[in-house]
């Protein structure tokens, strides 16, 4: 059997980093303007798909960019910045194409139903919300919020990936990359579903009243990710 206490003690810093990374991902999901099925029909503000799909799309891109950076440098700051930028680009492109489709395809102006004035541009919102909808499209504040969410999510994902790759083990690099990616993806998915239950599937961004609920999801994610981190450290450290 493997030396459980020894592995956990020698990797304590990575254990904590993974846990914090998971909590960051959980927080980041609250920034992303997720509209779910109603937004797909332009009846709610946000991108027309679920939290998990968006978080996974942006987060996995962050993992890929972090992994690519890891090939050329060991500098933790560069790797994490690369992950954050990758996720930001991915979520921005998604929101940009979504905004184009809502504006020129569906033909509705971007408008938020949760606030009367856009907190960033100070534009009036409520006049442009169609009757019977919860807003539509992606107003500026949602876009900015989404980019912040992408940055935090990519940051968290890259921290997790970096920590997993740094655990001492006897694996060849190609297998280590494989198992670290699998654990990073697993942790990412768990931490994107927990906040999506917290916000009930839809949120417009940091100006949405639901945003105030984030401490509950972050606490849940801290606990859940800590368990994930123990599993991951024991598996990788024991090989």
């Amino acid at each position: 059997m493997i030396d459980i206490a020894g592995i956990l003690m020698s990797n304590m810093s990575y254990l904590i980093l993974i846990t914090l990374g998971g909590a960051l991902i959980s927080w980041s999901v609250h920034f992303v303007p997720v509209g779910g099925a109603p937004a797909a029909m332009a009846q709610a503000t946000g991108i027309g798909t679920g939290t998990v799909q968006l978080a996974a799309g942006a987060g996995l891109t962050g993992l890929v960019t972090a992994g690519a950076m890891m090939q050329v440098t060991d500098n933790m700051a560069l790797i994490i910045a690369s992950g954050a930028v990758g996720a930001m680009i991915m979520i921005s492109v998604t929101m940009m194409v979504g905004a184009l489709v809502y504006t020129y395809g569906v033909g509705c102006p971007p408008a938020s139903a949760k606030v009367k004035y856009d907190p960033i541009t100070k534009d009036r919102q409520d006049l442009y919300v169609s009757q019977g909808t919860e807003g539509h499209g992606l107003p500026t504040v949602s876009f900015v919020s989404g980019v912040i969410g992408g940055a935090l999510g990519g940051f968290g994902g890259a921290v997790i990936y970096y920590s997993l790759m740094s655990i001492e083990n006897g694996l060849p690099l190609v297998d280590l990359v494989g198992i670290a990616s699998v654990f990073a993806v697993g942790i990412f998915f768990v931490n994107s579903v927990i906040p999506s239950y917290n916000i009930g599937g839809t949120i417009e961004g940091f100006h949405d009243p639901k945003f105030k609920r984030f401490p509950k999801a972050v606490i849940s994610s801290l606990i859940a990710t800590f368990v994930c981190a123990i599993l991951a450290v024991l598996s990788i450290g024991g090989l």
């Binding site: 779910g36 998990v52 999506s196 009930g200 599937g201």
Partner: peptide, 8 residues
């Protein structure tokens, strides 16, 4: 669930 079935 409020989030659609795929999440689960």
């Amino acid at each position: 669930l409020g989030t659609g079935v795929p999440s689960i």
